[in-house]
Write a protein that binds this DNA or RNA. Structure first.
Lengths: 142, 142
DNA sequence: ATTTGACCTTACAACAATGGGAAGGTTTAT
DNA sequence: ATAAACCTTCCCATTGTTGTAAGGTCAAAT
């Protein structure tokens, strides 16, 4: 199976397959005389594994861990669970941050007339002289 | 005011200030004889604007639009609102995606014993021979 | 047998946004 | 005069992915 076939079979682009090989996420793929990569079921299976993990937002590093665990017949499921849980917490952090932004923005948008006049609370807020927001200017010992 | 002061006053790192100048997000800053950048209130004000927009997750491109509108006395607030609303939708998309991941992962984690044994539904799911599309995973059948 | 087109190879650049660091010039305070 | 604290530009790395260029290979049609 050539790389094009493997890409279609796994849902990972040729580019990314080569990349994953180059960084060692998947071991070196065997080649034909001419240098073409040859994929067998084993490799394609791993690529599909990667594809699914990627869909769940795992980083390349985390995928490396998961792949290692997958291939370790003596793994403890606790180790796998730990990776997954850490990722859930990462996701929670990101979701939280995005929702905070969303809330603030939603609030501003709700108060903007959205007509031809220039007055706009969104810009006013962005341009506001810093009041008691998260940034600090003071650095001197007072 | 030198760049270090401007950085402290705006909450944007020196690095990023130079970068924002280099890509034209802020106009060229005037210089001393020796080549040091000189920031006046006007520039610092713009940097603070950028800092706030960035905290709300606006991209550099969107910030460019917002800055232009901010400086356009004849803007229509509708234009500002449109930028903000587009961004809210972007945020919604990202949140949605992350929550989908989170849900799936949470489900898998819940069904993993997390003990010494190797059996793990998380790995089983990732390794599954594709049955249906990856989105059609089993959802809370209780 | 040669051409064509679809495939493969590597290598390099780019994206967004940010940080790190080197090598060197300037200002300020001692 | 000298050291410390600034500033400057330039290049590199990150994460994950795509694009492109220049070239080698394979299979089918001429």
């Amino acid at each position: 199976m050539n790389i094009g076939q493997a890409a279609k079979a796994s849902g990972i682009s040729e580019k990314m397959i080569r990349y994953y090989e180059s960084i060692g996420l998947i071991g070196p793929v065997s080649r034909t005389e001419a240098g073409y990569r040859v994929f067998r079921e084993k490799e394609v299976h791993a690529l599909r594994f990667i594809s699914r993990a990627r869909d769940l937002g795992f980083s390349v590093e985390q995928m490396g861990n998961l792949l290692a665990l997958w291939q370790d017949r003596h793994r403890a499921s606790a180790d796998v669970k730990a990776v997954a849980q850490a990722h859930i917490e990462e996701l929670d952090g990101k979701i939280q941050k995005l929702q905070d932004m969303r809330r603030t923005l939603e609030h501003l948008v709700k108060h903007c007339r959205g007509d031809e006049r220039p007055d706009c609370p969104i810009l006013s807020d962005l341009a506001a002289e810093s009041v008691a927001e998260s940034h600090e200017r003071d650095v001197e010992t007072s």
